[in-house]
Each structure stands twice: as C-alpha cells, then as structure tokens.
Simulated scan of single mutants.
Amino acid sequence: MHDRTTAHQITAASLRQLWGMLGAETQTQAVQKIRELTREIDIDAYVSPVPPGYDTVMGYLAKNHPETLQFDMWDAEGTQRDGFWCKHQCTKRGLPVCKVPAPAVFDGEGFELVNAYPVEILSERLGGPV
C-alpha cells in the first residue's frame, strides 16, 4: 500500500459521513446538484486495448473510478505521477510494463502509445479491485 491517499478515497469517506448527517430533503437537493455538476463520460474513450491482467492508468480510472473523470478530479501531472509510481514498482518487482495504443481521449494530444501495468499494481496505487 502506498502512503498517498487518493482523491476518491477522501471523497468517498467524507461523502458517506456527510450523507448520514443530511435530512431526506437535503439529500434530494444534493443529488440534484451532483447531477448538475457531473458530466457524462464515454468510458470507452479512456480505455486502450491491453493484454489480460493489464491496464493503463486512465483505463483503470475509467473502469473503477469514473467519478474522478466525471468531476474532472484528475490532472495530467497526477496521472504521470501515478504512472511513474507504477513503472517504478514494476521495475522493483521484475514485472513487465507494456506499451499499448493511447486511448481516444488523447487523440490530437501527441500521445500514440501509453504504458500498461499489471492490474495489481494499479489497484495498489489507485484503490479498487484487482
């Protein structure tokens, strides 16, 4: 486990605690506001074709934590840090890192290939299922 608490972990814990303190009318208002603030995302636009047991940082987030993309809670610098951590862990553990085609969301951004990491490594860094 890494020592960095991810945004979705903080958000989920804080929201559960806050939600329990709200009355039914306030909960309804909160749901309406969340619907206004979130945007629909095309998860497929964030997913790259990967070998079995592997995923990219963006693909893993899209599949397991789409709320971070809906609320625009991710940033390129943070994603790069996540990728650096994953690559370092793979090197340290002797696990291969794969190059795969960049997802559609990166079209026109100059990325043709991105790294894919073992899902176990991504789960350690980003939280979620293996």
Rank of each mutant, 00 (worst) to 15 (best):
residue 110 G to D: 04
residue 92 K to H: 09
residue 9 Q to C: 01
residue 71 F to W: 13
residue 107 D to G: 01
residue 45 A to M: 14
residue 116 A to C: 01
residue 98 C to M: 13
residue 29 Q to F: 07
residue 125 R to F: 06
residue 41 I to N: 04
residue 123 S to N: 06
residue 2 H to S: 05
residue 73 M to G: 15
residue 126 L to D: 06
residue 68 T to C: 01
residue 59 G to K: 05
residue 42 D to M: 04
residue 122 L to V: 06
residue 75 D to S: 15
residue 73 M to N: 13
residue 130 V to C: 08
residue 103 P to L: 03
residue 29 Q to A: 15
residue 127 G to M: 12
residue 33 K to R: 13
residue 89 Q to F: 10
residue 46 Y to M: 03
residue 97 V to N: 02
residue 84 F to D: 15
residue 117 Y to E: 00
residue 49 P to L: 04
residue 61 L to D: 00
residue 122 L to M: 06
residue 47 V to K: 15
residue 11 T to E: 08
residue 5 T to P: 08
residue 59 G to D: 01
residue 24 A to W: 04
residue 114 V to E: 01
residue 8 H to Y: 14
residue 27 Q to H: 03
residue 35 R to G: 04
residue 114 V to A: 01
residue 49 P to S: 11
residue 85 W to K: 15
residue 53 G to C: 02
residue 10 I to M: 11
residue 79 T to E: 12
residue 25 E to A: 13
residue 67 E to K: 15
residue 24 A to V: 09
residue 112 E to A: 10
residue 97 V to S: 02
residue 72 D to M: 13
residue 26 T to D: 12
residue 53 G to S: 02
residue 128 G to W: 02
residue 18 L to Q: 11
residue 16 R to T: 06
residue 66 P to I: 06
residue 59 G to M: 06
residue 9 Q to I: 01
residue 109 E to H: 10
residue 28 T to L: 08
residue 13 A to S: 12
residue 30 A to E: 07
residue 95 L to N: 02
residue 88 H to M: 09
residue 126 L to R: 03
residue 56 T to Y: 05
residue 94 G to P: 04
residue 73 M to F: 14
residue 41 I to F: 09
residue 81 R to F: 14
residue 97 V to Q: 02
residue 97 V to G: 01
residue 60 Y to S: 01
residue 111 F to H: 07
residue 78 G to I: 05
residue 60 Y to F: 13
residue 130 V to N: 11
residue 51 P to Y: 05
residue 70 Q to V: 03
residue 2 H to C: 02
residue 9 Q to L: 02
residue 87 K to H: 11
residue 1 M to Y: 02
residue 98 C to K: 15
residue 13 A to E: 10
residue 74 W to K: 04
residue 129 P to H: 14
residue 34 I to C: 08
residue 55 D to Q: 14
residue 118 P to G: 04
residue 129 P to W: 14
residue 2 H to D: 03
residue 77 E to G: 13
residue 42 D to E: 09
residue 26 T to I: 07
residue 70 Q to G: 03
residue 92 K to P: 05
residue 42 D to W: 00
residue 25 E to S: 11
residue 37 L to C: 13
residue 61 L to S: 00
residue 36 E to H: 04
residue 19 W to T: 07
residue 54 Y to M: 06
residue 62 A to H: 05
residue 9 Q to P: 00
residue 27 Q to C: 06
residue 56 T to I: 01
residue 123 S to K: 08
residue 80 Q to H: 08
